[in-house]
Simulated scan of single mutants.
Amino acid sequence: MNETGSRLMAGKTVLITGGAGGIGRATAISLAKMGAHVAITGRDPVRLQNAAREIRAAGGGQVDSFVADMTSQAEIRHLAGEIRQNIPRLDVLVNNVGGYWNTRHLSADGLERTFALNYLAPFLLTNLLLDRLKSSAPARVVTVASNVQSGGRIDFDDLQGERHYSGARAYSQSKIADVLFSYELARKLLGSGVTANALHPGVVSTSFGAEDPGTVQRLFLPLMRPFMKTPQKGAATSIYVATAPELEKVTGCYFSNSKARKSSQQSYDNAAARLLWQLSAKLVGLESLQ
């Protein structure tokens, strides 16, 4: 669904993680223009408030903002509590937040940061908000993955990159994990009225990876920028999957350029998806979800 000024999302509430900049902010602006009540998260309060003002000005509707560092499970739990307290219905959750680090960093929980932010954060937040999504059904969970999932591999013996770390490998592993999660979530939610889909936004020109860039970011990104998508174009598939009426009952799919595509062969490994879910539930303290 393109940005047309349509009020397609009037009366609906959408939560977008990482909505203070880049693809997340562009997604929020478009959904606000469609009439949605938009809620965004970000870790920098000033940047978050500036984004909220911009989204409010573009759409003219209600915009809520929540400060949260999504690498911290405590902050994700606090965020979920704030959402439950302040947002009575949740029609769409867009798991958009993500990051890339060339060297190995640990989160506040002692977990490898790429895995914690790109994968465990959406896993935990989605599960904490499932009751709200189910009570708002028909509802959607939209998870922003990446086509690097095609080369990703879940290393169950070294999920945290303790023995061997590569920024690129950690990133691709987190993105295949996002797709496996989406498919397993779709299976678990069958009949609930809540769908779960993943997507590739395209190669987008943002500040992604700027905190700890690798060789590709330092040397090649400046040359590639003229050929990369703008955040607005990068948000198009997220907007489509979040809003398209024809997708109301479509679940367990992977989208690129606003079309359903095949994801990598490993992403359809149901046994791997179940094992990843079980390990993830333990890592975030939700063992009852197994």
Results as ranks from 00 to 15, higher is better:
122 P>Y: 08
201 P>N: 09
226 P>Q: 13
216 V>H: 13
133 L>S: 01
181 F>V: 10
102 N>S: 11
140 R>K: 04
129 L>D: 02
157 D>E: 15
109 D>I: 00
245 P>H: 13
201 P>K: 07
110 G>D: 02
127 N>P: 02
135 S>Q: 14
215 T>G: 14
196 A>N: 08
187 R>I: 08
200 H>I: 00
229 K>Y: 12
186 A>V: 07
147 N>S: 13
108 A>S: 11
136 S>D: 02
150 S>A: 15
150 S>H: 15
140 R>H: 04
219 L>M: 11
241 V>G: 00
119 Y>N: 08
222 P>F: 03
106 L>N: 07
173 Q>E: 14
220 F>K: 04
166 S>V: 08
174 S>G: 13
164 H>C: 15
120 L>N: 04
154 I>C: 14
108 A>Y: 12
175 K>Y: 10
192 S>W: 00
129 L>P: 01
107 S>V: 01
143 T>A: 12
237 T>Q: 01
214 G>S: 10
185 L>V: 07
239 I>M: 06
215 T>D: 13
202 G>V: 05
189 L>C: 04
133 L>P: 00
190 L>V: 14
114 T>W: 05
185 L>W: 10
213 P>M: 12
195 T>W: 01
130 L>I: 07
168 A>M: 15
138 P>G: 02
151 G>S: 14
246 E>Q: 04
198 A>E: 04
197 N>P: 02
161 G>Y: 11
226 P>F: 14
118 N>Q: 13
144 V>T: 09
164 H>Y: 12
219 L>I: 07
141 V>R: 02
198 A>L: 04
153 R>S: 15
151 G>V: 10
144 V>D: 05
194 V>Q: 01
160 Q>D: 06
227 F>Q: 13
194 V>H: 01
204 V>N: 05
189 L>E: 05
226 P>T: 11
111 L>M: 07
153 R>N: 13
242 A>W: 00
219 L>C: 07
171 Y>P: 06
121 A>T: 02
236 A>D: 06
103 T>H: 10
125 L>T: 08
237 T>K: 00
224 M>C: 12
207 S>R: 14
221 L>R: 14
178 D>C: 15
220 F>P: 02
200 H>F: 02
188 K>V: 12
224 M>Q: 15
124 L>M: 11
142 V>A: 03
157 D>L: 09
169 R>N: 15
110 G>W: 00
186 A>K: 06
111 L>C: 05
129 L>V: 05
178 D>W: 03
151 G>P: 12
239 I>R: 00
112 E>I: 01
117 L>I: 10
218 R>N: 10
126 T>P: 06
204 V>L: 08
224 M>P: 08
206 T>C: 07
132 R>E: 09
212 D>N: 10
102 N>H: 07
131 D>F: 06
233 K>N: 14
231 P>G: 12
122 P>V: 09
142 V>T: 04
